[in-house]
């Protein structure tokens, strides 16, 4: 919904869902969560506690980080009961 000029702007400050997904918050990241799938027991605790909804449950039941949006807070690594996620410094 990119407006070009005042003519495209709606009457009021109405915002549509088209959405914040344009904000690639992954760019904020300093630390990157890396999952060792062999240790993961698929308890989904990391998924549950992700403030950025940046962990996906795949159709096969595995989880995957969405690096487009993951800000690298590290909650997933901290909460994982199996220590399957480690935080590594971004290049």
């Amino acid at each position: 919904m990119a407006f070009k000029s005042v003519k495209d702007v709606p009457l009021g400050p109405y915002c549509h869902l088209e959405s914040t997904l344009i904000n690639k918050t992954g760019e904020w990241r300093n630390m990157r969560p890396v999952l060792d799938r062999s240790k993961c027991i698929r308890c989904y605790i990391c998924w549950k506690f992700c403030p950025d909804v940046a962990i996906k449950i795949l159709p096969d039941g595995n989880i995957e980080h969405d690096y487009e949006f993951c800000k690298g807070c590290g909650i997933c690594a901290n909460e994982c009961p199996k220590k399957a996620i480690t935080m590594v410094r971004e290049e």
Partner: peptide, 28 residues
């Protein structure tokens, strides 16, 4: 002018920046 629509939800009144579009909304 604002529709309370649960299928196509709209937010109204969010933060609007100096470079876009607060000034245009005031012009309106």
């Amino acid at each position: 002018a604002y529709k309370l629509d649960f299928d196509n939800p709209v937010s109204i009144g969010s933060l609007s920046m100096p470079h876009q579009w607060y000034m245009e909304l005031r012009y309106k």
